[in-house]
């Protein structure tokens, strides 16, 4: 977590803040954060996409707000203040979805509220935003949100195409393809994420778990 002292809008370090979490330091497959919702909302692409956007917004803005307040937050009630910020932002996202993306709001139901306990958000607040400048924290939030969304969408695409023969609700596979119902069942997402981790670690030896 290199913090640069230079103030630049989008320098090399800032770009790295965004790209790093997508692969090498992916929150889902490497840091194992935010797995819960990654598994539950990926049976179709559309809700997964909305969820990814929601989490990215919450991570980015909670990082921003926490970073701006980081010097004034009393350390003894740090957690409560962070939770308050996150909960308020999640509530805002929930209301926005209800107003502007109602069908996704219906599909995601309680999982929107559960963004609060998505460990990515709290994890980034503790690990990054409490010690870094607002702009960098904001980018770090976007990067982690994108890393999370990336995995979510890969899984959703595979599951929707193989499990339903469709993509974003449109039929893409010819009619002789019999949809594999196993892929839309919840446990398929666990197999899939296991395989994604396997592929990623086979490609990137430094991530291999030695224990």
């Amino acid at each position: 977590m290199a913090t640069d002292t230079k103030v630049s809008v989008l320098g090399k370090n800032e770009r790295k803040l965004i790209t790093d979490p997508i692969d090498d330091n992916n929150p889902v497959t490497v840091q194992i954060l935010g797995v819960c919702s990654a598994l539950a909302v990926t049976s179709q692409v559309y809700p997964a996409l909305i969820m990814a956007i929601g989490v990215t917004l919450v991570t980015a803005f909670s990082n921003l707000v926490t970073s701006m307040l980081r010097k004034s937050i009393p350390s003894s009630i740090r957690m409560i203040v962070q939770l308050l910020i996150v909960a308020a932002l999640v509530q805002v996202v929930e209301m926005l979805l209800g107003a502007f993306a109602y069908s996704a709001y219906e599909m995601l139901s309680v999982f929107i509220g559960l963004i609060i306990t998505n460990c990515i958000v709290m994890g980034r607040l503790e690990a990054y935003a409490m010690a870094n400048k607002p702009w960098q924290s904001f980018l770090d939030g976007i990067g982690n949100g994108l890393g999370y969304g990336f995995i979510l969408i890969i899984m959703a695409v595979i599951r929707e195409i193989s499990g339903k023969g469709s993509f974003m609700g449109w039929k893409v596979l010819p009619s002789w393809y019999i949809p594999n119902n196993l892929m839309v069942l919840p446990c398929a997402s666990l197999f899939l994420i296991g395989v994604i981790i396997w592929v990623q670690r086979a490609r990137n030896q430094k991530l291999v778990d030695v224990s």
């Binding site: 446990c187 997402s189 666990l190 197999f191 981790i197 670690r201 778990d209 224990s211």
Partner: peptide, 15 residues
């Protein structure tokens, strides 16, 4: 297999 050890296997097991 080494790349599957730990986390990867844990997910498949949960599945």
């Amino acid at each position: 297999p080494a790349p599957l050890r730990g986390l990867g296997m844990a997910f498949i097991l949960t599945g």
